[in-house]
Design a protein around this nucleic acid. Structure first.
Lengths: 342, 342
DNA sequence: CTGTTAGCGCATTCAT
DNA sequence: ATGAATGCGCTAACAG
C-alpha cells in the first residue's frame, strides 16, 4: 500500500486517496483532473465527489516533476521598488496568473554580475521561461541563453537574432514627438539631456530629437546636448552644464521623467519661473509626472502594455496559447503644463 | 539502468550521472551536495570534479518533492506597482534570496476576494510560508491560516493570537510626533485628515495625534478631523471640507503622504501659499515626498526594515536560522519645508 | 563513512 | 474507457 494512504491526522490528501475513495484507479483521477482524455461520466462524478469530500488539491511540485514544467516564469527587472518597473511587474504577474502561472521576480540593479546571478537563480528554480528587462547583459549572452532552449522574452530591447522575442517602444518616434511638440510651440533653440549613450533606448530617443530638428530645417548644435545617466541628479547637473555653455535655449527635452524632474527642481532653485522661462518635456510618463510642478508634459511609454505582450508571447511559446502578438509599441505625447509657447 | 543516464544530446545531467562519473553511489553525491553528513575527502573531490565536468545543477523540483520544501515564500502586498510596497518587496526578496529562497509576489488590491484568491494561489504553489501585508483579510481568517501549520508573517498588522508573527510600526507614536512637531512650532489649531477608521494603523495615528494635543493642554475639536481613505483625492476633498467648516486652523496633519500631496495641490489651487498659509505634515515618507512642493515634512515609516524583519522571522521559523527579531519599529520625524512657525 | 532501497505525488505509457 | 506499472530526480532511512 502506498504510504500516503496511511499517514495521520493533518494529512494532505493525495491522488491515491481520491482514487481509493472513488473506487477507481489513480489514472482515472489524473484524467479527470487534467481533462484531456475522456472519462465515463459516472466515474467522473464519483471522482469529483471524492475530490470535494477530501478537499483534495493536486500537489504542484509532484506535477512539475512528472511533466517537467513548473508553471513559473522568471522576471528580471532593474529594480523592484521603482514605479516604472512596478507597472511592468504588475502587468506580467496578472497576465500570467490569470493562466495559473506564477512569476518569480528578481532585481538586476543595472549591474552585470547581479543580472547574471539573478538569471542563474531563476534557472536554478526551473522556470519555464524568462522575461527580462535587462540593462547589462550582452546580446551574446542573451543569444546563448536562448539557445539553451529556455524561452526568453525581452522588454525594451532589440537583439538581432531574436526577432520574435523582443518587445519594445518606438523610442525614436518618442524623441521625435517630444521635440516636434516644442517646435510647434515656436521654440527654435532646444536643449536636450540624453540618457547614457551606451543604452539603445537613449540613443534612439536622441535620434528622434535630431530628426525633428532636421525636419524643421534647424541645424542641431551638439553644445545643446548633454549626456546624462537617466538619474534625477543628472537632470539638474545637465541643466547647469547646458546653461554654463552660454548658448540660448528656450526649451529642454529630457530623455526621461526623472531627469526632467531634476531639471525642474534645479531651474526653480535658480529662480526661473516655469514654464515661462523654460519649457521642459520628459519621457515615460511615470505616475510621478503628475506631481511635479508644473505638471510635466511628457511622452507616454506604455510599459504595462509592452510587458503584458511579452507575457502573452511566453504563453504562446511555452503554454500553447495563440494570442496575437505585437512587437513594437507607439509612444504618444502627453501635454501638461510644463511647456508653453515661445 | 536509470533512464536518466541514457537520454540524448541536450540532456540535463542528473545526480545518477554524477554518481556514475565519480564512481560512487548517488547517496554520496547527495551528501556532498547537501553538506550535512561527512564524506571522505577523496570521494568528495571526485564528486566535485564530476559535478563540474558535467556542469550538474540539482533539480530543485525533485528536491522539493523529496523533502517537501519548495524554498519559496509567498508574498501578498496590496499593489505591485506602488513604491511603498515596492520597498517592501525589495527588502523581502533580497533578504530571502540571500538565503536561496525565492518569493512569489501577488497583489491583493485592497479587496477581500482578491486577497483570498492570492493566498489560495500561493498555497497551491506549495510555498513554505507566507508574508502578508493584508488590508482585507479578517483576523479570524489569518488565525485559521496559521492553524493549517503554514507559517505566516504579518506586516503592518497586529493580530491577537499571533504575537510573534506580527511586525509593525508604532503608528500611535508616529501620529504623536507629527502633531507635537506642529505644536512645537507654535500651532494651536491643527486639523487632521485621517485614514479609513476601519484600518488599525489609521486609528492609531489619529490616537497619537490626540495624545499630543492633550499633552499640550489643547482640547481637540472633532470638527477639525476629516475621515479620508488614504487616497490623494481625499486629501484634496478633506482640505476643502475642513475649510468649509469655517473653523480656523494653521496646520494640517495628513495620515499619509498621498493625502498630504492631494491637500497641497488643492491648497495651491485655492491660491494659498505654502507653508506660510498652512503647515502640512504627511506620514510614511514615501520617495515621492521629496518631490512635492514644498518638500514634505513627514513621519518616516521604515517599511523596508519591517519587511526585512518579517523575512528574518520566516528564516528562523521555517529554515532553522536564528536571527534576532524585533516586532515593533519606531517612526521618526523628517522635517522639510512644508511646515513653518506659526 | 558508504551503498541500497524505498518513497515524495503525479503523468503517462502500455495493456486491456 | 480503464487500470497497472513505471519513471520524473532527489532525500532519507537503513544496513553494512
Amino acid at each position: 500500500m502506498h504510504l500516503a494512504t496511511i499517514t495521520g491526522c493533518y494529512h494532505v490528501p493525495t491522488i491515491y486517496e481520491v482514487a481509493e475513495k472513488a473506487g477507481v484507479s489513480l489514472s482515472t483521477v489524473s484524467r479527470v483532473l487534467n481533462g484531456k482524455a475522456s472519462v465515463n461520466k459516472a466515474l467522473k462524478e464519483r471522482v469529483d465527489q471524492a475530490i470535494k469530500e477530501l478537499n483534495y488539491r493536486p500537489n504542484s511540485v509532484a506535477r512539475s516533476l512528472a511533466n517537467s514544467r513548473t508553471d513559473s516564469v522568471g522576471l528580471l527587472v532593474p529594480e523592484l521598488n521603482v514605479p516604472f518597473y512596478g507597472d511592468l511587474m504588475q502587468a506580467v504577474e496578472s497576465t500570467l496568473r490569470a493562466h495559473d502561472k506564477h512569476v518569480i521576480m528578481t532585481a538586476g540593479r543595472n549591474c552585470l554580475e547581479t543580472e547574471k546571478d539573478a538569471v542563474d537563480f531563476l534557472i536554478s528554480r526551473n522556470c519555464d521561461a524568462l522575461i527580462m528587462y535587462s540593462e547589462s547583459l550582452t546580446d551574446d549572452y542573451l543569444l546563448n541563453l536562448n539557445q539553451t532552449k529556455l524561452p526568453i522574452s525581452l522588454v525594451n530591447r532589440n537583439v538581432d537574432g531574436l526577432p520574435e522575442a523582443c518587445f519594445t517602444l518606438d523610442n525614436e518616434k518618442g524623441g521625435y514627438l517630444a521635440t516636434r511638440h516644442l517646435l510647434e510651440l515656436g521654440h527654435k533653440n532646444i536643449a536636450y539631456i540624453s540618457g547614457p549613450n551606451n543604452k539603445v533606448d537613449a540613443c534612439l530617443r536622441l535620434k528622434g530629437h535630431k530628426r525633428a530638428l532636421i525636419e524643421a530645417g534647424i541645424v542641431g548644435n551638439p553644445q545643446l546636448i548633454f549626456n546624462g545617466d537617466y538619474s534625477e541628479e543628472d537632470g539638474a547637473i545637465g541643466l547647469l552644464e547646458l546653461m554654463a555653455r552660454d548658448l540660448p535655449f528656450s526649451a529642454l527635452v529630457c530623455a526621461n521623467d526623472w531627469m526632467a524632474s531634476g531639471a525642474i527642481s534645479c531651474a526653480r532653485e535658480l529662480g526661473m519661473s516655469l514654464p515661462q522661462d523654460l519649457s521642459i518635456v520628459g519621457f515615460d510618463d511615470i505616475v510621478f509626472a503628475h506631481h511635479v510642478f508644473p505638471r510635466l508634459t511628457t511622452v507616454s511609454n506604455p510599459v504595462a502594455d509592452i510587458a503584458e505582450m511579452s507575457a502573452r508571447y511566453i504563453l504562446n511559446k511555452v503554454y500553447g496559447q495563440t494570442n496575437i502578438v505585437q512587437q513594437c509599441f507607439e509612444p504618444s505625447l502627453v501635454v501638461r503644463e510644463s511647456t508653453i509657447n515661445f
